[in-house]
């Protein structure tokens, strides 16, 4: 944790959130630029709630959540949306707009938040798609694409636009896309080297325990919030 104080803080969570009257989770996390937190979250609903807290779409019951020094609870709605444009996310349930093609879905956040020419955005997305093992920018429809392609496309969408924070909810689809691991590890390393922080939520103890993932922190998401914990090795 000492290194985090030297780096620019990307995400700071000092918050509590009550899922039920009995269960209040405490979330205490500081992620600096280039840091990588790996969180074991067996319950997908709780993982989604935590990701939404970090991304500012769910308000904390108490405390504060800061992204790039901005408190989600205090920034105006349109500023919060613009800040979320700096976050690359992989969603547990996919988050694909069903009536848009995969290519449009992948490009949607970048075209919305930036003025990058569309052709240039397509080229960058196609390069990233190849880096994640796709032949190019996927052109089909979300419901007609194989789950492996959707997992890779979700990574392309998350990493496109060089985000400051990556929030990855089960990007390997709980082990259903095992060959994505090495490519994702490389992409995370490249993102960290340019100063992005990474928050990876996984339901798989094997992924969480994987020594090949160079996480700076390993945490567990429980009924009572985030707990720092060493993997049992």
């Amino acid at each position: 944790m000492s290194a985090t104080t030297e780096r620019a803080t990307v995400l700071l969570m000092e918050a509590a959130h009550a899922e039920t009257e009995e269960e209040t989770g405490v979330f205490d996390l500081r992620l600096g630029a280039g840091e990588f937190a790996l969180v074991l979250a067996p319950d997908p609903a709780r993982a989604a709630l935590f990701a939404d807290l970090a991304g500012g779409t769910v308000a904390a019951a108490s405390g504060r959540v800061l992204f790039l020094g901005q408190d989600w609870a205090r920034v105006p709605h349109d500023v919060a949306d613009a800040l979320r444009g700096r976050i690359g996310r992989v969603f547990h349930e996919g988050g694909w707009v069903p009536h848009l093609s995969m290519a449009t879905n992948v490009l949607l956040p970048l075209l919305h938040h930036t003025r990058a020419p569309e052709g240039e955005a397509r080229d960058r997305a196609a390069d990233l798609a190849r880096a994640f093992g796709l032949p190019g920018l996927p052109l089909g429809w979300p419901h007609a694409s194989p789950s492996g392609d959707r997992a890779r496309a979700a990574c392309v969408r998350a990493f496109l636009g060089e985000p400051s924070l990556l929030i990855l909810e089960s990007p390997l689809m709980e082990g259903r896309v095992p060959d994505l691991m090495a490519r994702l590890r490389d992409a995370i390393a490249a993102a960290r080297s340019r100063g992005a922080a990474c928050l990876w939520l996984t339901a798989s103890a094997l992924v969480w325990d994987d020594p090949g993932l160079p996480a700076t922190e390993r945490l567990r998401l429980t009924d009572f919030g985030l707990r720092a914990e060493r993997p049992a090795r």
């Binding site: 919060a80 444009g85 996310r89 349930e93 996919g94 707009v97 069903p98 949607l108 956040p109 919305h112």
Partner: peptide, 11 residues
């Protein structure tokens, strides 16, 4: 849950 995803991406 796609609306949640849109909001999460700042859309």
């Amino acid at each position: 849950g796609q609306l949640r995803a849109l909001q999460g991406m700042g859309l």
